[in-house]
């Protein structure tokens, strides 16, 4: 039963409160998922520690070639940030697809990661961007790739009763880099994705230098597809290469049958199309040729 709702003013204050209450206190940011889970009894807590008013968590900043997104930054702030649009189009697009305008005004990108839903749009984009999370505990700070933050379906490696993800960061985009996010859904708002794909490419002299491809929900969390990335490495930018990489993602993809969001067979069949389209867009974003 909830006893109190607090607004710590600093990260340290938040984290020490968690420590003092040993599992009885929990971090809340936007609360758009948490406030559904608590009434349903999925989560029980005595104290909610609201981090949305801690100044340094409310910012999108750039420092030393890294872009930082604080834990209290909402989806809409990310989607409309010129810095993000320029450096990480995939993330701006992904954040713009989440839920609805009202949800995006409240829900945060970091919360999207911590909630650990398999197809969390922002998380998929962050994995493609190679983002790292900064986790603050009473012992200090740890840095974990977003990719490694999934412990299972709907389970995060983050324990929000003792840890606070303070921000996520990823490198500023180089001129020859591009990203893209594509999403398959049954309607344009208020819908979870049937599939989503984020990619990041780095081009050089008409070739892919390297690429990251992330897709969901084809496993417990956003899934990298190393085989397909390997296909692209050093390869010439041609429709055939892109198609080959797109087909190669199927080695790693294991979408399940969902009565709500499509059969395994259907999703397996259209996944390469999405990957192909995402790669095409990312190449253009990176200043490469459009096909």
């Amino acid at each position: 039963m909830l006893q109190d709702y607090l607004f710590p003013e600093t990260v340290n204050e938040a984290v020490s409160f968690l420590q003092d209450h040993e599992g009885q206190a929990r971090i809340i940011a936007g609360g758009t998922d948490l406030m559904l889970d608590i009434p349903e009894g999925k989560i029980e807590t005595n104290y909610l520690v609201d981090i949305s008013r801690i100044p340094e968590l409310r910012e999108i900043t750039m420092k030393d070639d890294l872009i930082y997104i604080g834990a209290a930054v909402t989806h809409n702030q990310v989607a409309s940030s010129e810095l993000i649009q320029k450096n990480a189009a995939a993330l701006a697009q992904a954040a713009g697809y989440v839920g609805s305008h009202q949800i995006r005004n409240a829900g945060t990108v970091v919360g999207n990661v911590c909630n650990a839903q398999p197809a969390a749009d922002a998380a998929v984009a962050l994995v493609a961007l190679g983002a790292t999370a900064e986790i603050t505990t009473p012992a200090g700070q740890e840095y974990v790739p977003v990719e490694k933050m999934y412990a299972g379906v709907g389970r995060s490696t983050i324990d929000s009763t003792s840890q606070l993800v303070t921000r996520v960061s990823f490198p500023v985009a180089q001129k020859n880099q591009g990203t893209a996010f594509v999403r398959l859904h049954q309607r344009n708002a208020l819908a979870l994705p049937m599939l989503n794909v984020a990619v990041m490419v780095t081009l050089e002299n008409g070739r892919f230098l390297w690429a990251r491809i992330c897709m969901a929900p084809v496993g417990p969390g956003p899934m990298r597809t190393l085989g397909a990335e390997e296909v692209l490495k050093g390869a010439e930018i041609t429709p055939e290469v892109i198609e080959k990489a797109a087909q190669a993602v199927l080695e790693h993809a294991n979408p399940r049958d969902s009565a709500l969001r499509g059969s395994k067979e259907y999703r397996t069949s259209v996944l390469p199309v999405l990957v192909r389209r995402a790669l095409g867009q990312a190449v253009v974003d990176a200043g490469g040729p459009s096909n």
């Binding site: 049954q186 309607r187 344009n188 708002a189 208020l190 819908a191 979870l192 709500l260």
Partner: peptide
């Protein structure tokens, strides 16, 4: 299976 606005796919203003 579809017992909420989120799961029941009626069109939104964006559709």
């Amino acid at each position: 299976l579809e017992n909420s606005f989120h799961k029941y796919m009626l069109p939104t203003a964006d559709d």
